[in-house]
């Protein structure tokens, strides 16, 4: 299977995060960094009444948990168990070179993912480890597997030196689709389970999650993506939608 998407492109993830942060700040949103949620407070009725953090308490009747790989940990603070498993997903970046690679290449067959950033670095995406982990680093054989495939396809990259690598923790659902919606606890909402994808869905995901939290009911777009689908059995049949092997 192969295809060329001529309209395809890349977005600089840091700039996207900065853009959202600045726009949110301009709208009056407080963004508090380096502040860990240590507890989720509940009323006698069971509803959410606030969050405890390392920098104090915040009283609120609605909490949205968007914690990626650590969703199970945060939801555990409210006593909620999740249908999630967390895995390290590795990426690595080479030394910068002149423009040599004007596209994004992805192959599921040999598991290669490579593009070149504006700064000239080759950006390489490797796979996930087979075991759950919060180590924020993955096994060397996982990245080596991808590098072997890339060097086989593009022998000219075999002399490139890698500058850095890292492992992000991704939360994976049993059907590989996200959960965006309510939880068994009144006032507690969750947006999670994006697995190895999710970046490109950020605007839509944020929009429907804000709708869900404001109205207490899901937007029609995220209505099927409930936590409850694992009880009813109405799973999302799109495990291959991201075209990446999870």
């Amino acid at each position: 299977m192969r295809g060329l998407q001529r309209r395809g492109g890349v977005a600089r993830h840091d700039a996207v995060a900065w853009g959202y942060a600045r726009a949110a700040d301009a709208l009056g949103v407080d963004i508090i960094q380096n502040c860990e949620v240590t507890g989720i407070e509940r009323r006698a009725s069971g509803a959410v009444s606030g969050v405890e953090t390392t920098r104090g308490r915040i009283g609120t009747s609605r909490v949205g948990v968007v914690a990626a790989g650590h969703t199970s940990v945060i939801m555990g603070r409210a006593g909620v168990r999740m249908p999630l498993e967390s895995f390290p997903l590795q990426a690595l970046v080479s030394e910068p070179v002149k423009p040599v690679f004007p596209c994004v290449l992805m192959s599921n067959a040999v598991h290669a993912y490579i593009s070149q950033s504006d700064k000239g670095e080759l950006v390489i995406g490797a796979g996930t480890d087979q075991y759950t982990s919060y180590s924020q680093q993955g096994g060397l054989h996982i990245s080596a597997h991808t590098l072997e495939a890339i060097c086989e396809l593009f022998p000219q990259f075999s002399r490139m030196r890698m500058l850095r690598s890292w492992g992000g923790i991704v939360d994976v659902t049993p059907d590989r689709s996200p959960i965006i919606g309510k939880t068994p606890i009144p006032g507690l909402f969750v947006n999670c389970g994006w697995g190895t994808g999710g970046f490109k869905a950020t605007p839509g995901s944020g929009h429907v999650f804000a709708w869900t939290m404001a109205k207490g009911e899901p937007h029609p777009i995220n209505a099927p993506f409930t936590l409850d689908r694992f009880r009813t059995g109405r799973l999302i049949d799109e495990a291959a939608a991201a075209a990446v092997a999870h």
Binding site: H70, S72, R81, L84, E85, T132, F230
Partner: peptide
């Protein structure tokens, strides 16, 4: 259904000793 879902799909996903 919830108990069956817990068996099939829900995991502790422990950060620590598993």
């Amino acid at each position: 259904d919830q108990a069956w879902a817990e068996y099939l799909f829900y995991r502790n996903n422990v950060r620590g000793v598993q």
